[in-house]
Amino acid sequence: MNKVIITTDSTCDLSDELLEKYSIKVIPLYVMFGEESYLDRVNITTEKLYELVEEKGILPKTATQPSEVYYEFFKQFIDEGYSVVHVSISAKLSGSYQQSYLASQRFEEGQVHVVDSMSLSSGVGLVAMKASQFAKMGLSAEEVAEKAREIAPRVQTAFVIDTMEYLYKGGRCSGIANFIGTLLKIKPIIHMKDGAMEVGEKPLGRKKAYELLLNKIYRDKDNLDPEFVMVTHSLNFETAEYLKAELRKNLEIENLYETVAGCTISSHCGKGTIGILYITKE
Protein backbone atom coordinates (compact mmCIF):
# COMPACT_ATOMS: atom_id res chain seq x y z
CA MET A 1 0.00 0.00 0.00
CA ASN A 2 1.21 3.51 -0.80
CA LYS A 3 2.11 5.65 2.19
CA VAL A 4 0.50 9.00 1.41
CA ILE A 5 -0.01 11.80 3.91
CA ILE A 6 -2.23 14.84 3.38
CA THR A 7 -1.03 18.23 4.57
CA THR A 8 -2.54 21.70 4.39
CA ASP A 9 -2.15 25.16 5.91
CA SER A 10 -4.00 26.73 8.82
CA THR A 11 -6.47 28.48 6.53
CA CYS A 12 -8.27 25.12 6.18
CA ASP A 13 -10.43 25.90 9.24
CA LEU A 14 -10.88 22.25 10.18
CA SER A 15 -11.23 21.46 13.87
CA ASP A 16 -8.56 19.47 15.69
CA GLU A 17 -11.02 16.56 15.79
CA LEU A 18 -11.47 16.59 12.01
CA LEU A 19 -7.74 16.90 11.40
CA GLU A 20 -7.19 13.85 13.56
CA LYS A 21 -10.10 11.91 12.07
CA TYR A 22 -8.86 12.42 8.51
CA SER A 23 -5.13 12.25 9.38
CA ILE A 24 -4.38 15.73 7.99
CA LYS A 25 -1.29 17.65 9.12
CA VAL A 26 -1.25 21.46 9.25
CA ILE A 27 1.43 24.10 8.83
CA PRO A 28 0.50 27.37 10.59
CA LEU A 29 0.56 30.74 8.86
CA TYR A 30 1.49 34.01 10.54
CA VAL A 31 -0.86 36.57 12.09
CA MET A 32 0.76 39.91 12.87
CA PHE A 33 -0.12 42.95 14.97
CA GLY A 34 2.51 45.52 14.13
CA GLU A 35 5.83 44.03 15.26
CA GLU A 36 4.21 41.15 17.14
CA SER A 37 3.76 37.90 15.23
CA TYR A 38 1.77 34.81 16.14
CA LEU A 39 1.33 31.37 14.61
CA ASP A 40 -2.28 30.61 13.70
CA ARG A 41 -3.68 27.75 15.83
CA VAL A 42 -0.40 27.53 17.81
CA ASN A 43 -0.19 30.57 20.08
CA ILE A 44 -3.25 32.56 19.07
CA THR A 45 -6.95 31.70 18.89
CA THR A 46 -9.80 33.45 17.11
CA GLU A 47 -11.08 34.75 20.46
CA LYS A 48 -7.64 36.13 21.32
CA LEU A 49 -7.40 37.73 17.87
CA TYR A 50 -10.48 39.86 18.48
CA GLU A 51 -9.30 40.75 21.98
CA LEU A 52 -6.07 42.07 20.46
CA VAL A 53 -8.02 44.05 17.84
CA GLU A 54 -9.95 45.77 20.66
CA GLU A 55 -6.85 46.27 22.78
CA LYS A 56 -4.56 47.60 20.06
CA GLY A 57 -7.10 49.35 17.85
CA ILE A 58 -5.53 47.93 14.69
CA LEU A 59 -6.45 45.11 12.35
CA PRO A 60 -4.07 42.16 11.99
CA LYS A 61 -2.13 41.23 8.89
CA THR A 62 -1.27 37.73 7.76
CA ALA A 63 1.75 36.18 6.08
CA THR A 64 2.74 32.82 4.67
CA GLN A 65 5.66 30.70 5.75
CA PRO A 66 8.84 30.94 3.66
CA SER A 67 9.72 28.01 1.41
CA GLU A 68 12.47 26.89 3.81
CA VAL A 69 9.89 26.27 6.55
CA TYR A 70 7.66 24.41 4.09
CA TYR A 71 10.67 22.31 3.12
CA GLU A 72 11.33 21.29 6.74
CA PHE A 73 7.61 20.65 7.25
CA PHE A 74 7.48 18.30 4.25
CA LYS A 75 10.84 16.69 5.03
CA GLN A 76 9.66 15.24 8.34
CA PHE A 77 7.07 13.15 6.48
CA ILE A 78 9.38 12.23 3.60
CA ASP A 79 11.91 10.99 6.19
CA GLU A 80 9.18 8.74 7.60
CA GLY A 81 8.66 7.18 4.18
CA TYR A 82 5.55 9.10 3.13
CA SER A 83 4.71 10.83 -0.12
CA VAL A 84 3.02 14.17 0.54
CA VAL A 85 -0.05 15.74 -1.03
CA HIS A 86 -0.26 19.34 0.17
CA VAL A 87 -3.54 21.24 -0.28
CA SER A 88 -2.96 24.99 -0.28
CA ILE A 89 -5.20 28.03 0.07
CA SER A 90 -5.94 29.54 -3.36
CA ALA A 91 -2.84 30.77 -5.16
CA LYS A 92 -4.73 33.98 -6.01
CA LEU A 93 -5.25 34.82 -2.32
CA SER A 94 -1.91 34.02 -0.73
CA GLY A 95 1.75 33.40 -1.43
CA SER A 96 1.39 30.07 0.40
CA TYR A 97 0.92 28.07 -2.79
CA GLN A 98 4.07 29.52 -4.37
CA GLN A 99 6.20 28.98 -1.25
CA SER A 100 4.98 25.40 -0.79
CA TYR A 101 5.51 24.67 -4.49
CA LEU A 102 9.09 26.01 -4.34
CA ALA A 103 9.74 23.75 -1.36
CA SER A 104 8.27 20.75 -3.17
CA GLN A 105 10.74 21.18 -6.03
CA ARG A 106 13.64 20.43 -3.70
CA PHE A 107 12.52 16.81 -3.29
CA GLU A 108 12.74 13.94 -5.74
CA GLU A 109 10.02 14.01 -8.38
CA GLY A 110 6.74 12.62 -7.06
CA GLN A 111 7.57 12.93 -3.37
CA VAL A 112 5.61 16.14 -2.75
CA HIS A 113 2.56 17.20 -4.77
CA VAL A 114 1.11 20.67 -4.17
CA VAL A 115 -2.57 21.21 -4.98
CA ASP A 116 -4.10 24.66 -5.43
CA SER A 117 -7.49 24.32 -3.68
CA MET A 118 -8.72 27.46 -5.49
CA SER A 119 -10.54 28.12 -2.23
CA LEU A 120 -10.22 29.43 1.29
CA SER A 121 -11.31 28.43 4.78
CA SER A 122 -13.06 25.05 5.00
CA GLY A 123 -13.20 25.01 1.20
CA VAL A 124 -9.49 24.16 1.51
CA GLY A 125 -10.50 21.69 4.20
CA LEU A 126 -13.04 20.00 1.94
CA VAL A 127 -10.40 19.31 -0.69
CA ALA A 128 -8.02 18.04 1.99
CA MET A 129 -10.65 15.70 3.49
CA LYS A 130 -11.48 14.31 0.06
CA ALA A 131 -7.77 13.80 -0.60
CA SER A 132 -7.54 11.94 2.71
CA GLN A 133 -10.34 9.61 1.63
CA PHE A 134 -8.54 8.90 -1.65
CA ALA A 135 -5.30 8.20 0.21
CA LYS A 136 -7.09 5.73 2.47
CA MET A 137 -8.30 3.91 -0.65
CA GLY A 138 -4.66 3.15 -1.43
CA LEU A 139 -4.20 5.52 -4.35
CA SER A 140 -0.72 6.84 -5.11
CA ALA A 141 0.20 10.42 -4.20
CA GLU A 142 0.05 11.37 -7.87
CA GLU A 143 -3.46 9.90 -8.20
CA VAL A 144 -4.64 11.58 -4.99
CA ALA A 145 -3.30 14.95 -6.16
CA GLU A 146 -4.93 14.54 -9.57
CA LYS A 147 -8.31 13.75 -8.03
CA ALA A 148 -7.98 16.65 -5.58
CA ARG A 149 -7.30 19.03 -8.48
CA GLU A 150 -10.42 17.73 -10.23
CA ILE A 151 -12.50 18.48 -7.14
CA ALA A 152 -11.09 21.95 -6.41
CA PRO A 153 -13.14 23.84 -9.07
CA ARG A 154 -16.32 22.16 -7.78
CA VAL A 155 -16.03 23.51 -4.25
CA GLN A 156 -18.85 25.98 -3.64
CA THR A 157 -18.11 28.78 -1.20
CA ALA A 158 -20.43 31.50 0.07
CA PHE A 159 -19.92 33.64 3.18
CA VAL A 160 -22.10 36.34 4.72
CA ILE A 161 -19.90 39.18 5.97
CA ASP A 162 -21.19 40.90 9.11
CA THR A 163 -18.75 43.80 9.05
CA MET A 164 -17.08 45.10 5.89
CA GLU A 165 -14.15 46.78 7.65
CA TYR A 166 -11.82 43.77 7.55
CA LEU A 167 -12.39 42.91 3.88
CA TYR A 168 -12.17 46.52 2.80
CA LYS A 169 -8.90 47.22 4.60
CA GLY A 170 -7.46 43.82 3.65
CA GLY A 171 -7.87 44.60 -0.05
CA ARG A 172 -8.33 40.96 -1.06
CA CYS A 173 -11.87 41.21 -2.40
CA SER A 174 -12.70 42.96 -5.65
CA GLY A 175 -15.73 45.21 -5.63
CA ILE A 176 -15.95 45.70 -1.88
CA ALA A 177 -14.91 49.36 -2.13
CA ASN A 178 -17.85 50.14 -4.39
CA PHE A 179 -20.34 50.22 -1.56
CA ILE A 180 -18.28 50.48 1.62
CA GLY A 181 -19.82 53.83 2.44
CA THR A 182 -23.41 52.76 1.85
CA LEU A 183 -26.00 51.36 4.19
CA LEU A 184 -24.46 49.63 7.20
CA LYS A 185 -27.21 47.03 7.13
CA ILE A 186 -25.88 45.55 3.90
CA LYS A 187 -24.50 42.06 4.58
CA PRO A 188 -22.60 41.16 1.38
CA ILE A 189 -22.23 37.58 0.29
CA ILE A 190 -18.71 36.69 -0.79
CA HIS A 191 -18.14 33.92 -3.32
CA MET A 192 -15.05 32.27 -4.73
CA LYS A 193 -14.76 32.43 -8.51
CA ASP A 194 -11.77 30.94 -10.34
CA GLY A 195 -9.77 31.03 -7.13
CA ALA A 196 -10.50 34.67 -6.26
CA MET A 197 -12.95 36.33 -3.86
CA GLU A 198 -15.71 38.46 -5.28
CA VAL A 199 -18.79 40.21 -3.98
CA GLY A 200 -22.06 38.53 -4.89
CA GLU A 201 -25.45 39.57 -3.60
CA LYS A 202 -25.78 42.58 -1.30
CA PRO A 203 -28.85 41.84 0.83
CA LEU A 204 -30.18 44.20 3.47
CA GLY A 205 -29.99 42.60 6.89
CA ARG A 206 -28.84 39.28 8.28
CA LYS A 207 -32.13 37.42 7.85
CA LYS A 208 -32.21 37.94 4.09
CA ALA A 209 -28.49 37.17 3.81
CA TYR A 210 -28.85 33.82 5.59
CA GLU A 211 -31.85 32.99 3.43
CA LEU A 212 -29.75 33.57 0.29
CA LEU A 213 -26.97 31.42 1.75
CA LEU A 214 -29.37 28.51 2.23
CA ASN A 215 -31.04 29.00 -1.14
CA LYS A 216 -27.70 28.65 -2.91
CA ILE A 217 -27.12 25.12 -1.62
CA TYR A 218 -30.80 24.22 -2.06
CA ARG A 219 -30.50 25.10 -5.76
CA ASP A 220 -27.62 22.62 -5.96
CA LYS A 221 -29.61 19.90 -4.18
CA ASP A 222 -29.59 17.46 -7.12
CA ASN A 223 -25.93 18.15 -7.87
CA LEU A 224 -24.71 18.08 -4.26
CA ASP A 225 -21.96 15.72 -3.17
CA PRO A 226 -23.56 14.63 0.13
CA GLU A 227 -20.39 13.36 1.80
CA PHE A 228 -19.32 16.66 3.40
CA VAL A 229 -21.04 20.00 4.00
CA MET A 230 -19.37 22.65 6.15
CA VAL A 231 -20.84 25.50 8.20
CA THR A 232 -17.86 27.67 9.09
CA HIS A 233 -18.03 30.88 11.08
CA SER A 234 -16.02 33.44 13.02
CA LEU A 235 -17.66 33.14 16.45
CA ASN A 236 -21.24 33.21 15.12
CA PHE A 237 -22.42 30.13 17.04
CA GLU A 238 -26.13 30.97 17.20
CA THR A 239 -26.49 31.37 13.44
CA ALA A 240 -24.45 28.20 12.89
CA GLU A 241 -27.04 26.23 14.89
CA TYR A 242 -29.85 27.77 12.85
CA LEU A 243 -28.17 26.99 9.51
CA LYS A 244 -27.36 23.41 10.52
CA ALA A 245 -30.97 22.81 11.57
CA GLU A 246 -32.26 24.13 8.25
CA LEU A 247 -29.76 22.06 6.26
CA ARG A 248 -30.66 18.87 8.14
CA LYS A 249 -34.35 19.55 7.58
CA ASN A 250 -34.04 20.12 3.85
CA LEU A 251 -31.11 18.06 2.59
CA GLU A 252 -29.66 14.56 2.81
CA ILE A 253 -26.14 15.15 4.11
CA GLU A 254 -23.82 12.40 5.31
CA ASN A 255 -21.44 14.58 7.33
CA LEU A 256 -22.50 18.10 8.33
CA TYR A 257 -19.61 19.74 10.16
CA GLU A 258 -19.49 23.05 12.02
CA THR A 259 -16.05 24.65 12.32
CA VAL A 260 -14.76 27.95 13.66
CA ALA A 261 -12.70 30.07 11.28
CA GLY A 262 -9.11 30.38 12.43
CA CYS A 263 -7.13 33.57 12.78
CA THR A 264 -5.94 33.77 9.17
CA ILE A 265 -9.46 33.80 7.73
CA SER A 266 -10.94 35.86 10.59
CA SER A 267 -8.23 38.49 10.05
CA HIS A 268 -9.65 39.15 6.58
CA CYS A 269 -13.39 38.57 7.06
CA GLY A 270 -14.12 39.77 10.59
CA LYS A 271 -16.25 38.66 13.51
CA GLY A 272 -19.69 37.24 12.76
CA THR A 273 -18.79 36.01 9.26
CA ILE A 274 -20.49 32.71 8.43
CA GLY A 275 -20.50 30.47 5.37
CA ILE A 276 -21.80 27.25 3.89
CA LEU A 277 -19.26 25.30 1.86
CA TYR A 278 -19.81 22.13 -0.13
CA ILE A 279 -18.82 20.23 -3.27
CA THR A 280 -20.92 19.67 -6.35
CA LYS A 281 -20.81 16.46 -8.37
CA GLU A 282 -20.04 18.30 -11.60
Rank of each mutant, 00 (worst) to 15 (best):
N2E: 07
N2D: 04
K3C: 10
I5K: 03
I5V: 07
I6V: 08
T7H: 00
D9N: 00
S10Q: 01
S10I: 00
T11W: 00
S15T: 10
S15I: 04
D16Y: 04
E17V: 12
E20S: 11
Y22F: 09
S23V: 05
K25G: 05
I27Q: 00
E35Y: 07
S37I: 07
L39V: 07
L39M: 13
D40K: 02
R41L: 06
T45V: 03
V53E: 12
E54C: 14
E55G: 09
I58K: 06
L59W: 04
L59K: 02
L59T: 13
T62W: 02
T62H: 00
A63R: 08
T64I: 03
Q65M: 02
E68H: 15
F74Y: 10
F74I: 04
Q76T: 10
E80L: 13
V87I: 02
G95L: 10
S96V: 03
Y97E: 08
Q99N: 10
L102W: 10
Q105E: 03
E108R: 09
G110Q: 13
Q111F: 06
H113D: 00
D116G: 12
D116R: 10
S117D: 00
S117N: 07
L120N: 15
S121L: 08
S121E: 13
S122W: 00
V124N: 00
V124G: 00
V127N: 01
A128Q: 03
A131K: 00
A135H: 05
E142K: 14
V144I: 11
V144A: 05
A145G: 14
E146M: 11
K147C: 06
A148T: 14
R149V: 15
A152H: 05
A152M: 08
P153Q: 14
P153H: 05
P153L: 06
R154G: 14
A158M: 11
F159H: 12
K169F: 07
G171C: 12
R172F: 12
A177I: 05
A177P: 01
N178I: 15
N178E: 11
L183T: 10
K187E: 06
K187S: 08
P188K: 05
I189W: 09
I189T: 05
M192F: 09
M192C: 15
A196L: 06
M197Y: 02
E198I: 03
E198K: 14
G200W: 12
K202N: 12
K202W: 14
R206P: 13
K208M: 05
L213Q: 13
L213M: 15
L213G: 10
Y218Q: 04
R219G: 12
N223P: 03
P226Y: 14
E227F: 03
V229Y: 05
M230L: 08
T232I: 01
H233F: 12
E241F: 11
L247D: 14
L247I: 15
L247R: 15
K249V: 15
E258P: 06
A261Y: 02
G262L: 12
C263H: 05
I265A: 07
S266L: 09
H268T: 14
T273S: 13
Y278A: 13
I279N: 08
T280Q: 11
